[in-house]
């Protein structure tokens, strides 16, 4: 099979697709691209002497790099195990979506606030053993406070349960933020069109 006419067009196509999926792990990206390239070769094998138009038709039937990259991201978001995604991966992905407009920016801000909140709970749990009198659930006239240096004011409540409560709250905040991001991505139509 002579693909001399097709190779530059195919290489350009996959270079574009590779660029669209550049934030994916290298191994996963290369495997995906390899599979699509095999598909293109299978299609071209059905033609005795594929011309440039044949190559163009095969790539058109496959879909544009934008469409494939968007579909791939959507499928990875929708997979049932996606709630196990690392907060760092989710934040990095949502940061890319800020270029998709106001909705993308909103999703990023929600993710940032949610994960900062969960990190705060974990940090409080971590600091409590080292600063027992400065870190905790304190209620005073000024309001509720979790940490204050050098001196803490107010009365502390639930001192013995503060660490496990913070760990649970941190986990719930992480889990809830990830679920909320998934929900927003599914229902924000403008964002779905652009990612």
């Amino acid at each position: 099979m002579n693909l001399t006419h097709c190779i530059p067009m195919v290489d350009t196509y996959f270079a574009q697709l590779n660029s669209k999926l550049s934030d994916l792990p290298v191994e996963r990206r290369q495997d995906f691209l390899r599979e699509l390239r095999a598909h293109v070769l299978d299609r071209l094998e059905q033609v005795t002497a594929p011309s440039v138009d044949d190559c163009r038709s095969v790539l058109k039937a496959l879909g544009t790099p934008d469409e494939i990259a968007r579909q791939y991201r959507m499928e990875m978001i929708l997979r049932t195990s996606s709630w196990r995604l690392s907060p760092f991966k989710v934040l990095r992905t949502t940061l890319r979506w800020t270029v998709a407009g106001v909705q993308g920016y909103l999703v990023f801000v929600v993710a940032l606030i949610g994960y900062i909140l969960s990190a705060s709970f974990y940090i409080c749990a971590l600091l409590k053993p080292f600063f027992p009198k400065n870190v905790g659930f304190f209620v005073s006239d000024a309001g509720i406070n979790f940490a204050q240096f050098p001196v803490q004011y107010g009365q502390e409540y639930l001192p013995n349960y503060f660490i496990p409560i913070c760990i649970v709250m941190g986990y719930l905040a992480t889990f809830g933020t990830t679920l909320l991001i998934r929900f927003l991505v599914r229902h924000l139509s403008q964002l779905r069109k652009k990612i």
Partner: peptide, 8 residues
């Protein structure tokens, strides 16, 4: 679209 199948 043929490219749809592979992400799925």
């Amino acid at each position: 679209a043929e490219g749809t199948v592979y992400p799925i």
